[in-house]
Amino acid sequence: MADEATLAAYDSAAASFADDWHGQPPPSDLHAVVDRFFRPGTSVADIGCGSGREVGWLAARGYVAQGFDASRGLLAEARRRYPTLTFAHADLPALDGIAPASFDSVLCETVIMHLDRGRIAAAVRRLIDIVRPGGVLYLSWRVTKGADQRDGHGRLYAAFDAAEVRCGLDGARLLLDEEVVSASSGKVIHRIVAEKRGNAD
């Protein structure tokens, strides 16, 4: 499950976090990657959807989008801001209630660094598990060098190597693997796009 202090921070200050995220510049780089690799009109799960910003964008672009988050406070913000869209509670790495091969694409933007390092590979395996064969996983995380860190809110930023993520994607085909500065947050992130191979591959 998510780090308890991180989850408590999001639950206790959900409205403030939501205001901050929605006040940031649009994540044009993320949107460009989605447009490049996701197929319009298909189903997408946003795992760790926060206050729903990307779910709203995906729906406006014609995707059948659903949002999932571990924070009930952030889910309340998402439902308030996007009352016509679908949001549900789900916690990595288990993602209880989401069947394997449920979505054509999965988006998980800057979430896994809030997990204990020992849970990251399992979370990545579960993320690719809910993608349909031939579908795509977009996964990113904020890069932390050296030791794990916590910010002023108490949120965990785990330090881990990208190799640990790639290990969880064994059998998937990497389409993108890069470290960049986020156009929205201004933080250094690592992003991977992986295609889940079909049964015949």
Results as ranks from 00 to 15, higher is better:
4 E>Y: 00
5 A>F: 12
5 A>V: 10
5 A>Q: 15
13 A>E: 13
13 A>R: 15
14 A>V: 09
15 A>F: 12
19 D>Q: 12
23 G>I: 03
24 Q>L: 15
24 Q>M: 14
25 P>G: 02
32 A>K: 12
32 A>E: 12
33 V>K: 01
35 D>F: 10
40 P>E: 13
41 G>S: 11
44 V>N: 06
47 I>V: 14
49 C>E: 03
53 R>Q: 10
62 G>S: 13
67 G>Q: 06
70 A>N: 01
75 L>G: 02
79 R>L: 05
80 R>M: 12
81 R>I: 10
83 P>L: 10
84 T>C: 00
86 T>P: 00
89 H>K: 15
89 H>T: 12
90 A>T: 07
92 L>T: 07
96 D>S: 14
97 G>M: 11
101 A>G: 00
104 D>L: 06
112 I>Y: 04
112 I>H: 05
115 L>S: 00
115 L>G: 03
125 R>W: 04
130 I>L: 07
131 V>L: 09
132 R>N: 09
141 W>P: 03
145 K>A: 15
145 K>S: 15
149 Q>E: 13
150 R>A: 03
153 H>R: 15
153 H>C: 01
160 F>T: 09
160 F>R: 10
170 D>N: 14
174 L>E: 11
174 L>C: 06
179 E>V: 14
180 V>A: 06
185 S>H: 05
192 I>Q: 03
193 V>S: 01
193 V>K: 07
195 E>D: 00
200 A>F: 14
